[in-house]
Design a protein around this nucleic acid. Structure first.
Length: 654
RNA sequence: GCGCCCAUAGCUCAGCUGGAUAGAGCGUCUGACUACGAAUCAGAAGGUCGGCGGUUCGAAUCCGUCUGGGCGUGCCA
């Protein structure tokens, strides 16, 4: 809401500078370091001083006296070496803020462009781990932010069901366990956990004797050929694991619109189509000599990527004729933009408890009337930073095909990995080599079965939350405790996963992750719960209803807002609340969910301080009381909204 | 070798496109619950912003360089 207000101000200053000094300047606003210096600062005189060649302080004074009275402002002041500080008219601002926070947000228009966000993308051969959680929390938060800012968003989850990783688990079942499809189907309990252990046993099996690797090749060949028992086993494993992953992700409030299966990209010959396009554009060529003889390679000599490579070429099709992951991904990316001239078939895969449907791609026998998928205007791929180079090649593929706009509209949402601290490994009884022990952290490795499983972490968090809830509320029913601790656990987890900037490695540590105090999701939830408690007590004791606020507002005397003590305290929180949409824009622009996370925490902090300092229920002065009620209500509404953008719910009590 | 990223308080991190006294959380120490529930709050201690140059009226922020660490650079994904 503060953005609109600022634009009006900037325009007034821009025109004044143009009239008086004949200089066209972009007026920049910033926030003063503390509230005493005003609500908005204009460093404009410094910029003007350069062209006009006069001291900034003097210019600032001229501008302040010359520009006169501005709407919405209480006063202007010159400060420091030449800042112009603006003080808002607090009453007017508060009324605008109330209007803004209580009005409905318009839903995205149906005919608008569609944005595609791809995230999660876990290989369907083992349980999800904490690294995958970071991906899903970031991706899902981005989805929520985009939707809130009015975008129509389609969420895709790519399933690599034909790759090496699934093949390895098949090797495990068939060659290590001697299991048939029927045996595998009978495996009870957490199937993804079973595969987690099996997968690392297969890695050991390969290490015992390199000849064992031939089993992987056999299985891969069977999967590719299709219509055989091995392929059936692979598909069964992948599908069952995907259901496990969906269940895990559902626990943390993450949903998808479409599962895109790599197998379908192959069966429907997406790659062949993309291959033709690349060939006809001479974007790739068949290498006839040298070490890449027999491969189709993309020439990157003219790309800025060339400096990252030893060879200015990237193999797209191997000499045995199979396509690499990059090739498949180019085809997929083309499809996402509606550039491939081909489409999947679709059928329903799963229905979420809220009624929304998850669709899946399929190679044949799809449902008659699926909703439209693909044809995005912009595409975000949430993939960890280690794949930056491959992502660049995928986008480069679009560019060399002449799709300049789509190239520019492809965004790799890159984030750093979650790693394990040596102490965390010790806690999990994971063995480390002497070199690894010396490192600050070690990578998670599904292959080695080294990692913290997502469900285990969620369980731990939930158990701890249960303890805490029960200590504080021994009278709660088991169902209440269950629901509240779920919300608290997920809040803690989701906040933990987004509070770090994305280019920071998270060295995972149970103590930090299981914390409910300080800068945590729980802290923020607690602030909202407190605000709700006040509103609930008001309603119990005085029959207050939230809609009463709109009615008493016109009659309130707002002079309290201008008092040095209380006025300034309230004002600080109110201006902070007004910045949510600005923070959301910033988060999207920089792809930093941590910006929003930090904002929520700061807002909660300010409220907690207010909570201790000022009483609401027992305040005798009517105007004071009403303004405090207004603040509590606006705070509650705004922070709850901000938390929802990170998929964090607010418990009714805690 | 080349490319990308990181280095700020004992620990984990913020610090927006350069701007007004470098901020949080955890940990340590001192205080505050007959309640709008202390999963909280108030206060204290703790920093030559990795080193050295440069640009600028002004640099944690931009440029160069060095050091230390991480990750890429596959006919794996």
């Amino acid at each position: 809401m503060i953005v609109k207000f600022q634009q009006e101000l900037k325009e007034r200053f821009r025109r004044f500078i143009l009239d008086k000094y004949g200089v066209e300047l972009e007026v920049i606003t910033e926030y003063p370091p503390h509230a005493g210096l005003g609500d908005l600062a204009l460093p404009l005189p410094f910029a003007l001083a350069r062209t006009v060649r006069q001291p900034p302080r003097k210019l600032a004074e001229e501008i302040v006296t010359g520009i006169g009275v501005l709407p919405g402002l209480a006063k202007l002041e010159v400060a420091g070496g030449g800042y112009i500080n603006c003080f808002f008219d607090r009453r007017e601002f508060l009324l605008r803020l109330h209007q803004d926070i209580t009005s409905e947000r318009k839903p995205p228009s149906e005919e608008g462009h569609r944005v595609i966000v791809e995230h999660t993308n876990i290989n369907p051969n083992k349980a999800a781990h904490i690294g995958h959680l970071r991906n899903a929390c970031l991706g899902d938060s981005l989805v929520r932010l985009l939707r809130w800012s009015g975008e129509k968003v389609e969420v895709q989850n790519y399933i690599d069901n034909t790759g090496v990783q699934v093949a390895d688990v098949v090797v495990g079942f068939v060659h290590l366990e001697g299991a048939t499809l029927e045996d595998i189907k009978k495996i009870p309990g957490k199937f993804d956990y079973h595969c987690w252990d099996l997968y690392s046993r297969v890695t050991e099996y390969y290490q015992q004797d390199e000849a064992n690797l031939s089993k992987r090749q056999e299985v891969l060949a069977h999967i590719e050929a299709g219509n055989n028992p091995i392929a059936e086993i692979a598909q069964y494993i992948a599908t069952r694991i995907v259901h496990c992953h969906l269940a895990t992700m559902h626990r943390i409030n993450v949903q998808y619109d479409l599962l895109a299966w790599e197998g379908d990209i192959l069966h429907l010959k997406f790659w062949e189509r993309a291959f033709d396009m690349l060939k006809s554009r001479n974007a790739i060529h068949l290498e006839t000599e040298g070490k890449n003889k027999g491969c189709w390679v993309m020439n990157l000599e003219e790309s800025e990527l060339v400096s990252e490579l030893e060879e200015p070429e990237k193999i797209i099709v191997r000499s045995d004729g199979t396509v690499t992951y990059v090739g498949k991904d180019i085809a997929y990316q083309l499809w996402k933009f509606g550039l491939l001239g081909q489409d999947f078939h679709y059928r329903k895969f799963h229905q979420y408890p809220d009624g929304s449907l998850l669709w899946t791609s399929t190679s044949n026998g799809g449902t008659d009337e699926p909703p439209p998928f693909g044809k995005g205007e912009r595409v975000y791929n949430v993939i960890d930073v280690r794949q930056s180079y491959l992502q660049k090649i995928v986008y480069e593929g679009l560019r060399v095909l002449g799709f300049e706009k789509e190239f520019r509209h492809s965004t790799h949402f890159a984030y750093e990995m979650v790693a394990l601290t040596p102490s965390c490994c010790q806690e999990l009884a994971l063995s480390l080599s002497p070199e690894e022990r010396k490192k600050p952290y070690v990578e998670i490795s599904g292959r080695k079965g080294r990692g913290v499983k997502a469900d285990d972490l969620i369980d731990k968090l939930t158990d701890k939350a249960k303890e805490e809830v029960t200590i504080r509320n021994p009278e709660f029913t088991p169902q209440e405790v269950e629901e509240l601790s779920r919300q608290i656990a997920i809040g803690a987890l989701r906040y933990f996963m987004v509070k770090y900037s994305r280019n920071k490695v998270i060295p995972f540590d149970f103590k930090e992750a299981l914390n409910f105090e300080g800068e945590t999701g729980c802290y923020i939830q607690y602030a909202v719960v407190r605000a709700n408690n006040i509103l609930n007590k008001l309603s119990e004791r005085e029959g207050f209803q939230e809609k009463d606020i709109g009615e008493f507002l016109p009659g309130v005397d707002f002079s309290v807002l201008n008092e040095p003590g209380e006025g300034d305290d309230l004002w600080e929180i109110l201006t902070l609340m007004s910045k949510l949409s600005e923070v959301v824009d910033m988060s999207i622009q920089t792809l930093e969910i941590s910006v929003l996370a930090k904002y929520c925490f700061t807002l909660a902090q300010k409220f907690n301080a207010f909570y201790h300092k000022y009483q609401v229920l027992r305040e005798g002065d009517v105007n004071r009381k009403r303004i405090r009620i207004l603040l509590v209500y606006l705070f509650r509404t705004q922070l709850k909204r901000a938390l929802a953008l990170m998929g964090i719910e607010v418990p009714s009590r805690m």
